[in-house]
Each structure stands twice: as C-alpha cells, then as structure tokens.
Amino acid sequence: MQKVAILQHAEGEWIGSMQGWFADKEFELQTYRLDFNEALPTIDTFDWLLIMGGPMSVNDEDTYPWLPAEKKLIKDAIEAGKKVLGICLGGQLIACAMGAKVYQNEQQEIGWHTVTKTDDTATWMPDSFEPLSWHGECFELPVNAIPFASSLITPYQGFHLGKYVWALQFHLEAEHGTVDAFYAVEKSLPDGEYVQSEAELFDDTPYLQQSREAIFALLHQMND
C-alpha cells in the first residue's frame, strides 16, 4: 500500500480528477490542510507528495508562516526520491524549494489556453491542448530541470526533475466544478488579454476529457 500525502492550500483546490486514478489502486490518501494550520506530514509517512494550488504566492512567507516548512518538506521529499507532483502554486513551490525564482508574470493567465509540448520525454502529454490555467506568477527553472511545455504568455508551463518530480503551472486535475470552486475563492476576474470571460471559463465540457486523460497518463508514468 503506497501512501499519498496531499498538501491543500485553499477550499476547493484538491486533487480533482486524480481521485479517480488512485481509487482503484493500492493507495492510501491523506490530505493536510495548510490553510487550516494543520501540521505537515513527516518525510517517512508518505511515498507520494501531491502539492495543490492556492491563491497565495510562494513569496508570502510573512502572511503564511507555514510556507518555509512546506518548502523544506518538498526539498527533502525530492532529495529522498519520493514521487512529487505540484500543480500551479504546487509547481511554483517545487521551483522555489529547489532554488529557482518565482515571479509575477507580465499578465495573468486565466482560462482554457493552449499549452504546447516542448520536450518529447513528456510522453503523457499531447503535442498541444487546452488545460485550465489560473495563475499570475511563473517560475524560472531549477538546476537540472527540464522544461516540457509553454504557452503564449508563460515560457515555462512545467518542468520535471528526473522521472518522478513534475511541476505544472496548469490545472490538469480540473473536473466539473473546478472552475466554480476557483471562482468562489477569487470572487471576481481581473481584466486582461489572457483572462477569458466567465462564459468561456464555465464552458468546460470540451476540455475536461483531454485533461483527465493527460493526468491519468502522467500518474501512470510516475507509477512505473
């Protein structure tokens, strides 16, 4: 039985469609609500670490005092050879924990925007597709990281460190209800060239199946 620790930072920002992949396999999932000040897991209590999104910045350590300990746990997990997957804020936390800069992008990117594969070792990913993006910050690359995707406004939509550590900017876990949950946290949308309208955002049906297939393929690749 493999143990999976899930780091959650906000209401509604859980593992989404990934739950379906884990459900019929020998995994035990436990969620840690950092936004509720729950204690972090210790390195010996999990085999996988899933780091989810949230509205905060990795640089907001004065506002969110659990961030330094979370970054240390991520770094320790990577160095211990654990399987680590970060999405949006989670991907940025991986970058920051491994010494890379996380910074404000020129514009916010919110919507079902095209992401293009840039590295063939990401065999789980289509050459081009439209996952859900919802971020205003982006990352530089840690040492030895390999970028695997980009979009018009975000040069690095993701990177990996070896086979078992993947950092994604986009929300590959999106399912029906994800946009509603994110919108409930934000409560409004900013203006911007890369911010879709509410009507476009909530029309998620054309995109969810491809995202689900991609995240299942990534989890399968990490589990090999």
Rank of each mutant, 00 (worst) to 15 (best):
D76Q: 15
Q19S: 11
P41V: 04
L89W: 15
E28A: 04
W21M: 00
L29M: 13
F46C: 01
D24T: 10
E28I: 01
E38L: 06
Y64S: 00
A39R: 10
G54D: 14
P55E: 12
A69Y: 10
I43W: 08
E26K: 07
K71G: 05
L89F: 15
V84R: 07
R33G: 00
I51F: 09
P65A: 00
L73R: 06
A69Q: 15
A77R: 02
E26G: 02
D76Y: 08
P68F: 08
W48H: 04
M98E: 14
D44L: 03
K25F: 04
F36A: 07
N59K: 04
P41L: 10
F22E: 14
L73S: 09
L40M: 07
Q19E: 15
T45G: 04
L29G: 02
D62W: 01
P41W: 13
Y32W: 13
G20R: 13
N59F: 03
F46E: 05
L89I: 08
G81E: 11
P55L: 07
I87R: 02
Q92R: 01
E79D: 15
L89M: 11
F36R: 11
F36W: 13
F27N: 03
G16H: 07
A97N: 04
A77T: 04
F27M: 04
W66V: 01
P41F: 11
N37W: 08
G81R: 04
Q19H: 11
M56N: 07
F27L: 02
E70G: 02
T42I: 06
A97V: 05
K71E: 15
T31Y: 14
D35E: 14
Q30H: 14
N37C: 02
A23L: 12
T31I: 12
I94M: 08
L73Y: 09
G54K: 03
K25L: 12
W21G: 00
M18V: 01
E38P: 09
G53V: 01
D35S: 04
W14T: 05
Y32P: 05
E70H: 02
G90L: 06
L93F: 10
D60G: 03
A77W: 06
M52W: 08
D60H: 11
W66G: 05
L85W: 10
A97P: 06
V84G: 08
L49C: 05
I78K: 02
P65V: 00
Y64E: 13
M98G: 01
K75M: 05
L40N: 05
D47V: 03
K71Q: 14
S17A: 13
G53Q: 07
A97M: 08
W14E: 14
F22V: 04
P41S: 09
L89T: 09
E38W: 10
G81Y: 11
I78R: 02
A23H: 13
I74F: 12
V58E: 14
G53D: 13
Q92M: 13
A97F: 10
L49R: 01
D62C: 00
Q30I: 05
I78N: 07
I51H: 06
P68C: 03
L29D: 11
